[in-house]
């Protein structure tokens, strides 16, 4: 009896410890703001993301200063006047698929699902749900998502003077190709 209990406990422990995690070191993120006056685009591929298969949790993190704009001055203003990246250097997201069974890890293919979690931009937390496409290949996932964020939700102030040039809703594209982490 003692042995069985001990073994059970160890097995549970082992299950937790061997949790498979996937890391995407070069996660691509793009901001796109479109107005009749001007389209503004910013990209980075130095964001990182992790997917813990055991807990089902997916997390993303990006350094705000890593975004490149077509115009250098926009980049400066983005950091200095809008995102205040000295104060809030990172944006993060942490969440789970709303329905874990939407993705079959054992079968190659593309799955559509919903990812729900907490987005943190400009120091403001907000719970959001975004549509994602998960591609499983050889039991390894890739993820891509396109969704909109409202500047006002994250206390990002757009002065009336440039309202015509900067959209109130910014389209965000995220793409991550994961690799199994070796522990």
């Amino acid at each position: 009896m003692k042995k069985i209990l001990l073994t059970t406990a160890l097995l549970v422990a082992a299950w937790g410890a061997s949790a498979q995690r996937f890391l995407a070191k070069e996660t691509y993120i793009r901001f796109f703001s479109s107005t009749p006056v001007e389209d503004i685009e910013a990209t980075t591929n130095t964001a990182v993301s992790v997917w813990d298969k055991a807990t089902g949790e997916v997390a993303f993190q990006v350094n705000i200063k890593s975004f490149t704009f077509e115009k250098a001055l926009m980049q400066e203003h983005f950091n200095e006047n809008y995102l205040h990246s000295d104060k809030y250097p990172k944006a993060t997201f942490k969440g789970k698929l709303t329905d874990a069974s939407a993705v079959n890890w054992d079968k190659d293919g593309a799955y559509t699902a919903q990812l729900k979690g907490t987005m943190n931009i400009h120091g403001v937390d907000k719970v959001i749900t975004v549509p994602v496409t998960v591609v499983i290949k050889d039991k390894t996932p890739s993820i891509s998502s396109k969704f909109k964020v409202k500047c006002v939700d994250y206390n990002i102030e757009i002065p009336t003077l440039v309202l015509a040039k900067i959209a109130e809703e910014i389209e965000v594209t995220v793409k991550a190709k994961f690799d199994l982490m070796k522990s």
Binding site: L5, L6, T8, A9, L10, V12, A13, W15, G16, A17, A19, R21, L23, K25, T46, V48, S49, V50, D52, A54, T55, E57, A59, F60, Q61, N63, T92, K94
Partner: peptide
């Protein structure tokens, strides 16, 4: 003893969970 071990075991994954952001910091 069993329950103690079980608690430790259950705590492990949640540890891992809180670790996730640290892991990203490390990866970056």
């Amino acid at each position: 003893r069993f329950f103690a071990l079980l608690l430790v075991a259950l705590a492990l994954p949640s540890f891992a969970q809180d670790d996730l952001m640290n892991l990203l910091d490390a990866a970056q």
